[in-house]
Simulated assay, not measured.
Amino acid sequence: MADRRAQIAEAGIRILATRGARALTHLNIDRELELAPGSTSYYARSRRDLISLIIDRLANRVTDDLAAQTIPQDLTPQAAASIVVAGLETTMRRAEDHRARLLLLLECRSDPELHAALSTRPTVRATFIDTATVMLRLLGVSQPSTNAHDFAGLVDGLLMQRVIRAAPVNEEAIVAAYLRGLMAKSAHRPPNNPNQAEGSSATPSRS
């Protein structure tokens, strides 16, 4: 039974990602899995039950690609930005998961319980928060555990930008600039020249 539930959830994710929320029906899942009509209804009576099954499946994706990156002790904003972008590249191998999650976030706006399960993704998000905290601490950012939540929000936004296939942006530049800003705020001074922030000496101006 557990295997069948997993198959149904996987089929639901595929349908959401490729055909949209309106195509997510019990009948379409039956057809996707070549099951007898009514088979999916045995495991998920209502549409809400079906969505809950899919959310549980998405929540069990415990591998955090961003957290899997190696973080050097001599971290700089640019190096941190490169790590984040590399993680985004890896996690987009599961693009269908992310598209399904985005559609369900919109679908479940009026259902606080399901929406909370989708938006928090406890295991994966908590792991990235821990990784972000380490990054910010190495960069000398004050209150790293607090700022890590905002950092995670920025990365999540960049991920959604990829998912919806919006106009491309310079992700490394955005993340590096954000981190430099946090470092400057922590030092109570305006942001330095990007080259200086990375530890490079500035070229003297000529009079």
Rank of each mutant, 00 (worst) to 15 (best):
M1R: 10
A173F: 08
D130N: 15
S39R: 13
A148E: 02
T63D: 06
L50A: 07
E32Y: 05
A23T: 07
L66F: 11
F128D: 00
L27V: 08
V134N: 07
I15E: 00
E34K: 15
A177C: 02
T203W: 09
T123Q: 11
A79L: 13
L179F: 09
A44N: 05
S46C: 06
L118Q: 07
A166S: 10
S207K: 03
D56K: 06
I29H: 00
P190K: 11
A177V: 04
L118C: 02
A184C: 13
M183K: 15
E198S: 05
S39K: 14
T25R: 13
T63M: 03
Q69M: 07
P72G: 03
G12S: 06
R165Y: 03
G181T: 10
A86G: 01
N193I: 09
L159T: 01
A100V: 10
Q7V: 04
E89G: 10
F151N: 00
A152K: 03
N60S: 13
L16H: 00
Q7Y: 03
L159K: 11
Y42C: 04
G38V: 08
T76C: 11
V124M: 05
F151M: 15
T146P: 00
A81F: 10
R4M: 12
A44C: 14
A167I: 05
G153F: 02
